[in-house]
Each structure stands twice: as C-alpha cells, then as structure tokens.
Design a protein around this nucleic acid. Structure first.
Lengths: 145, 145
DNA sequence: TACAACTTACTTGTATGCAAGCATAATCGT
DNA sequence: ACGATTATGCTTGCATACAAGTAAGTTGTA
C-alpha cells in the first residue's frame, strides 16, 4: 500500500540525511577548531595519519573527495606546514602526500579528538540505534548510485 | 569497557554521515536535474510548495538554511522565474517569498520526483532499517549542538 | 518622545562539492 | 617503436555552507 497522504518536505530522506550530516559536521568542526583546522581538513589529516605517503588519487579514494576538492585542501594543509607533496618516483604524474613532523603532531591530536567527539556525539543514542545507524549509512554509502 | 583498538578514520560517525548524505544528495540531484534545478534549489521549491508567502527567516527555519545561503538560492530561483520576493506589508524589513505560476508548476514536478526518489532510494533498506534510520537522524537533527 | 537593543535580509570572504576540461605521463595493442 | 587510450593532478566556474559584519526597520523602555 502506497502512502495516500503526501510526504511532507521534512520527511524527505535526502533532507534528513543532509541535515543530520550538517549537525555532525558542525559538532566536529567545533572540536577541531582549536587546531586551526576545518572539519574536512581534520578528516583528511586523520586519514593521512592512518596511512601516509599515498598518492592524491589514493587519498581521494579513501576520503571520498574528488581531485578538485582535494587540491584545495592539500594547498591549505601545505600552507599551514602540516603536509607536503613529494614527487612519486614510480610515476612522474603522481605525487605522494606526506605529513610533516608538525602534521603528525597535529594528527595525533585529531585522532584523540575524533575518539572523544564520536563518543560524545553518539551518547544520546542507544547501542542498537548506533549499530543500525552505522550499518545503514554504510549500506547507503557503498551502493552504486 | 572502552575500545582498546583505535577507531579507524572510516568508522568516524561524522565521516559516515557526511558520505551517506552526499550519496543521497547526488541521487536527488540527478532526479531533479531535468528541471534545471540543483538538489538544494529543488528542496527549497518543495518547502515553498508546501507553504508559500513566507518570510526569508521562516523559510530559512524550515529548510535549515542560513540567510546568507538562502539569499543566493532565492536570487537564482528568481532569475529562473520560479520565485519572487514580495514586500511584506507587516514589516518593511522583511520580504515574502512567493512561487510564481511557473514555479508552482515546477514545484508540483518536484513533489512527484521527491516521492519517487525517496521510494527508490530506500528500496534497499528493510522497513526496520528505514524506520530506525529516520528516527535516529531526526534525533540527531533535533538535539542541541 | 528618545534611544538603545534587537531583527531582517543582504553582503563579503573563505572553504568545500562537483562538473568539465587541461597538460603531462604512463600503458596498451599492434 | 608508435599511435590511441587511459590515468594523474591541476584549473576554472558555479553552487552551497557558514562566520562576520552592515544598513534599514522595529520594538521595548525610560
């Protein structure tokens, strides 16, 4: 049976996803503001902390950021002295993104903040809610669009 | 017991929310591209279709868009001949956003597309998954940040 | 009636997202 | 070896986000 009563705009799944995501991003942004990083920059730092010296393409794959967006982010991380682009000896087209010493220091802070922010953010959810949320978000993310 | 093994970047709830939201936004954007509307523009149209002749502040509250963002969106909807800003007789600072005839026509298409896109997007989820997702997203959205 | 405090919509500046296109370099088939 | 295809990172142009600030208008209060 399909809904006879029209869905309200607020009930749109795209709207709900977008706004919940914005809440999370703002929360995360506040957490890392003291590091002089934006939410996205901190996230990229976190990925680099996990695996360093990877190509821009690889980093883009991991972070789900396209190359145009990544270029700007890397520019800013580089300006801040947190990351640098190294030539890739295996492929002269490619670069290797590398965290500087200052970058690794900052990165370790990001790791700590992420643990804390995550725990704090999901505090209002039951274990079951959190599990289902995570698995459903993953399902949405992984599928072909 | 807290996690001893550090969380991976991918498991960050902010990352998961952001990327799932992006999937949704891209899906929705494709649906409404034929109307020459962006995902956000279509969403605003959908809200206006539901309640017309409201102030920019009211529209911003409903759509969860700040006034700076809304100004640009309304500019573009106005350029496209879909919406217009009317003077507010009750308050000379305020405006009333109004869908034109062309805008209402386009808006009815948006309504239809939204029903379809929603149904299609959640098709891969079980009823239980969808219910929990929606209620959890709502919980996240509604709480204080 | 003054006047301070607040609201409204707008502007500016910066940072993503994303589509489209580019020069350079690598790779594949012949 | 060589031309066609593909891959890499960059650039441009446009559309959100969002912080900060502004001019004009409204409201509460002495």
């Amino acid at each position: 049976m399909l809904a006879i009563i029209a869905m309200k705009a607020e009930d749109c799944i795209f709207f709900q996803l977008s706004k919940a995501s914005q809440r999370g991003a703002r929360f995360w942004a506040q957490k890392v503001a003291c590091l002089n990083l934006t939410a996205v920059q901190a996230m990229v730092m976190r990925f680099l902390y996990e695996k360093d010296e990877i190509t821009s393409a690889e980093l883009g794959f991991r972070t789900d950021l396209d190359s145009a967006t990544l270029t700007g982010i890397l520019d800013r991380l580089e300006s801040a002295g947190l990351a640098e682009r190294l030539p890739n000896p295996d492929d002269r087209r490619a670069i290797l993104v590398h965290l500087t010493a200052k970058g690794r220091e900052s990165g370790s802070q990001v790791v700590k903040f992420m643990e804390e922010a995550n725990a704090e953010f999901v505090r209002g959810l039951s274990g079951e809610e959190e599990r289902t949320l995570r698995s459903t978000l993953k399902k949405i993310r992984k599928r072909a669009v």
